[in-house]
Design a protein around this nucleic acid. Structure first.
Length: 429
RNA sequence: GUGACCAUAGCUCAAUUGGCAGAGCAUCUGGUUGUGGCCCAGAAGGUUGCGGGUUCGAGUCCCGCUGGUCACCCCA
């Protein structure tokens, strides 16, 4: 019989890697508490129309990457390819505008995009997502960036690159796109195939082209920063002022073009070393038109997504320390059926006393049981045999030292708690 | 969707010109009547990704497919 395998681009997260996930999640909770963000969870599925409207009809995500299907009642539904649209739907549907403004939320969970997998890119991947709804102040933009920055610093990242840009607004963006087209159209015959495609389909994409031949032309191409309307220019200036106050290093990257239609004004990316071609571990921006687009009253917003697989990948690449996996403190071993009865009861009592304990199963030899205790990293083995049972005690073996003591059963939990407390706190490695 | 490279035990990898599919690690058992790590012995573990072809004979050569990796596209 053929074996079942993972679906392309969807991965198992095994135990060694769970250490990283657990740590990243823990630091996320810490930093969101620190900055005053509340958790929100939204469904992994929404009606397809929400994403078409929210993400943008012409985007690759909507056009060819969504997992969409007809539900049993005939409505078209999709696995979420990003968080923002669903959160904005929840904001409007639940009337969250009555909460103190701005509303600052975060979430995490799986997203689905049918892309061809490569390093740091998977069809099911997880993001840490942050959204601030209801405030257009550029100080919010800086705070949102700081949440990500703070998290990455906490996780041990150095040498991060923060890159910012502005994509303007419906007032100034179309004018800039026209300038860009006007600039490249006479040069079209110098452009490679892909970039000629971009020129007609999505001119902004020319800006982040990797084509060799296009690079010198891009040097001379107009920058959007120089063609912003007064409001967007002022917003961008404010953003820079606040970043400067924080002494946060950043680079203006005229070529950041985010792929989703809804971005306005501020867009930014944070990049990490050690990741290969997909080195962006955080990307986001402002979306002041989105809520109105989805049927709410006009409300500004800003947010980012940060790929957890990429974070973990980079951490492993950079050898950043994470807490050791939690292992059992005690393994209860037994010899014979009578002792096993005591063991079954004892292991549960130890857990009641807050001691991480496991039971040896399967009536194996003591040798096999101790070997198991060693392999799973238990600090102590409690051995119950006929002799111990008769005396009302247990042999306790300290695995690291190989030393043993006989302890009365009714004192075992306090004895073990004392012994465990005197050990060193968990190491980072 | 396009391209390059790859596919042998749970994992990492051998297998000469085309000639009996192997090792290390991991798992289980034993080396003491009840004592882990090191060592020793043994067991179990495979339709060599799948399907064709060439050949007396294919893990090895040829074709197709599937899957994986990386890159493009795009994105976190």
């Amino acid at each position: 019989m053929a074996r079942y395998t993972r679906i392309t681009g969807m991965n198992d997260v095994l135990f060694e890697e769970q250490r990283y996930w657990r740590y990243v999640l823990e630091r996320i909770q810490h930093v969101t508490d620190l900055y005053g963000y509340r958790r929100i969870d939204v469904p992994v599925m929404e009606v397809t129309a929400l994403f078409v409207r929210g993400v943008g009809e012409g985007t690759d995500i909507v056009e060819k990457e969504m997992y969409s299907f007809e539900d049993r009642d005939g409505t078209m539904v999709s696995l979420r390819p990003e968080f923002t649209a669903g959160i904005m739907r929840a904001y409007i549907e639940n009337g969250l505008h009555v909460l103190p403004t701005p509303l600052k939320v975060w979430t995490t969970g799986p997203l689905f995009r049918h892309e061809k997998p490569q390093a740091g890119r998977y069809r099911q991947h997880s993001q840490f997502d942050v959204e601030v709804i209801g405030e257009q102040d550029a100080a919010v933009d800086v705070e949102v960036i700081s949440v990500a920055w703070h998290l990455f610093r906490d996780l041990g990242f150095r040498d991060l690159r923060l890159e910012i840009n502005s994509t303007g607004c419906p007032q100034c963006k179309p004018g800039y796109v026209r300038r860009l087209v006007d600039f490249f159209t006479p040069l079209a015959d110098q452009l490679p195939e892909v970039d000629r495609m971009r020129l007609c389909k999505n001119p902004l994409r020319l800006l982040d082209s990797k084509e060799e031949a296009t690079q010198p032309l891009l040097e001379r191409a107009p920058h959007i920063i120089e063609h912003l309307c007064a409001e967007c220019a002022e917003h961008f200036a404010q953003l820079r002022r606040y970043l400067d106050v924080l002494e946060r290093p950043y680079r203006i990257n005229y070529r950041i073009v985010r792929g989703l239609d809804y971005y306005t004004k501020t867009v930014f990316e944070i990049k990490a070393a050690g990741l290969g071609a997909q080195d962006t571990i955080c990307g986001g921006g402002r979306y002041d038109g989105l809520i109105a687009e989805l049927g709410g009253s006009p409300t500004p917003g800003i947010g980012f997504g940060s790929g957890i697989e990429r974070i973990v990948l980079a951490m492993r690449q950079l050898n950043l320390p994470v807490p050791e996996e939690v292992t059992p403190q005690v393994m209860v071993c037994y010899l014979g059926e009578t002792a096993k009865l005591t063991a079954v009861r004892l292991v549960e009592q130890l857990r009641d006393a807050g001691i991480r304990s496991v039971l040896a199963f399967g009536d194996r030899s003591l040798k096999a049981q101790l070997k198991h205790a060693d392999r799973i990293g238990a600090a102590y083995a409690v051995i119950l045999g006929e002799e111990e049972i008769q005396a009302g005690g247990a042999t306790v073996r300290a695995m690291a030292q190989g030393s043993q003591a006989v302890v009365a059963l009714n004192q075992l939990d306090s004895w073990l708690r004392m012994a465990l407390a005197s050990e060193a706190s968990p190491a980072m490695a």
